[in-house]
Amino acid sequence: MLSIRGLTVHHQLQTLVHPLDLQLHRGEWLALAGESGSGKTLTSLAIGGLLSADLHAHGSIQLEGKELLHLSEPEFRHIRGREIAYVFQDYQSAFTPFITIGKQMDEMIRAHTSLSRQQRQHSCLAHLEQVELPAKPVYNSYPFELSGGQLQRAAIATALLLSPKVLIADEPTTALDSLTSRSIIQLIQRIQQETGIAILWITHDLRQVQRTADTLLIMKSGQVVESGKSHSIFFHPTHPYTVQLLSSIPKLPSRYRLELQNKQVNT
């Protein structure tokens, strides 16, 4: 569905992303993991043509066979939202403060389709329900009236409004509590099963995607150091950096291991 070949991102003479290949299929959950400065966010922005003017992307990004990289800004605007949707870390700025959530969602549909007012409202409410929010009240709320988790859910509902084929989620749970982020991940998982949307998940925290990701790309200083099936990387990492990254994650012992340890201490 989404196919990236030899993508590079430059800033003046500096290469920020080295040639990168990536295949994302329908219904697949691909996690792009790396630390700050690894180029994971730049890659995700390049896909939607969101790089700032001083950054230059080269190579090839194809969405269902259509080349994206050389599209003009109006063409990109047409693609974003309809075919590729984004959810970002900073849920606070996902909505304009003094306009109701419903109005902003409505605007999004109106910009891209010619549905009637009632159809639009119906679609908004349905999508708010899909993200497990009380649809009517949230539709009429202002952003500041919602909690962080609720706002991020509303942002996801907005992203899904036009049934995009690819959802790019850039650290969408980093600013949230661990329990809230867990429920957001479960929500997206459910939506993926229902709709078959392809997900590109950008994160610095491998723990988040251990249970959900099908495919994993590990990036370091602009380069992909390891990629493959998620479980094979988790259990048999080959690149030293991946090994280091995995061992750096604080872990809880399993119940069984802890009991074993306690027994050893006691005897």
């Binding site: 043509g49 969101l50 984004y86 970002f88 999004m108």
Partner: peptide, 8 residues
Amino acid sequence: SILFRKGV
């Protein structure tokens, strides 16, 4: 903020 820019 460019990196986390809202672009949609």
